[in-house]
Design a protein around this nucleic acid. Sequence first.
DNA 1: CGAGCGGTTGAGGCATGTCAAGAGTTGTGG
DNA 2: CCACAACTCTTGACATGCCTCAACCGCTCG
Lengths: 246, 246
Amino acid sequence: MRPDTDPQIRHLHLFRDMAQANFAELMASSYVQTFPQGLEMIRQGDPADFLHIVMEGSVELVGQWAGRECTMAVVLPVSTFILAACIRDAPYLMTARTLERTRIVLVPASDLRAMFRRDTEFAVAVINELAACYRTVVRSAKNLKLRNSRERVASYLLRQSVLAGGVPSYTLPVEKRLLASYLGMTPENLSRTLKALESGGVKVDGARVIITDRAKLTALVKPHQLIDGPDAVADNSGSGLPRTRG
Amino acid sequence: MRPDTDPQIRHLHLFRDMAQANFAELMASSYVQTFPQGLEMIRQGDPADFLHIVMEGSVELVGQWAGRECTMAVVLPVSTFILAACIRDAPYLMTARTLERTRIVLVPASDLRAMFRRDTEFAVAVINELAACYRTVVRSAKNLKLRNSRERVASYLLRQSVLAGGVPSYTLPVEKRLLASYLGMTPENLSRTLKALESGGVKVDGARVIITDRAKLTALVKPHQLIDGPDAVADNSGSGLPRTRG
DNA sequence: CGAGCGGTTGAGGCATGTCAAGAGTTGTGG
DNA sequence: CCACAACTCTTGACATGCCTCAACCGCTCG
């Protein structure tokens, strides 16, 4: 365990309230690993042996079935993923693949499960974390079922702007291909939708997003706290897709 | 609190491991309420004051946005719902509406939150419950994004048969109208899809489902543990839609 | 009985996916 | 440094999945 990574992890909601000795113990049994770009760290269906913490880089979580696949989430530093699988000692539901060179801290799942039986503050943190994650996925499911693809794209573009502090312009944090998959559509369809949205108050040129008419875009999106709203603990900066931990 | 409801609640995974005195204390602050059919017990956005436990009847959880709505889950006895909202002391993400005359036990959320700080076994149970719920929603999201509507219908029909013990015939537990919404499609489309599936190994006549060619249907569905598989604790019988607790 | 509702069916239209081609970019190896 | 391969992104043409609207049937329930 590299000592310089400790404080960043310690500051996560998941770990900040637990006893220092217990935290140190968890870290002592953990280790750091760096993966090259495009590597499949986890294959869905594998047994969940480690809680993963992204320290640098980024990780894509994808669901696969019958030869198809779709992006479920992108995890940015510093945050954890696949907590739920570790807790249930069950197979991963998603495949994890690095989007770039990525440094990961691996915490043994068995130690994790033992720890929240001993440290009440940690147990409470896990409860809050899981509840937040759950609500994030429910929001995501509502987004999928209640909005069509145009509305999903528009709301994504507006939300990213809001998360960045209400800026009128920003660059997309991920490739459009991946974004399309995340939003549940084909790259071709995303491309056409982006062009069509120029009349909706937002223009996208390459990876550059420019809000040309915020009022019009907002009216189109009809942002809603119970879909777009924040439940996620603000551990990581809002520069990516909403985090989710399988 | 009606005493005859106690044992059923006590047997839920969520409550079975906690100290008897603590369970009794929770129940003492709870109360029972019976709602008529079609009543909106919870409106999405309301503050989450009570954990709900369905004792008799059934409850539909729906997401709403911009005048549209869709069914997210149906909760059958005996199980809980909206645990996550209670824990985070946050607004409900879904509206809850009775599908029939329904008896509900209401547990004050504040008592719940206080209790898992005192009772470690309860905290562990909450953790397991939330992790299971999380995985259920992730499966549901994968189902939505990776399968088209025909595949979702076919997999639903097959799964219900499996949950009922591999029976070749059963009756739909919910109205088709509701099922369509749950599966993310219109009633008309569901109706047409059901007819088209007669060549796929399953016939639906009214509410009666008959698996005419299990092998063919299974080949069509390609059931997958990481989408259809069980993570849900087998608290309630498998006669409904997968449970989910907001 | 008549209203209301769930379910079905048909016609038509829009949204989205598929296939194909080409421009631009990036990365690699000679 | 250049050539080439591989990849993303875009655009067009086309096919199809799914929704919308409308009508109708059958059932339930006042």
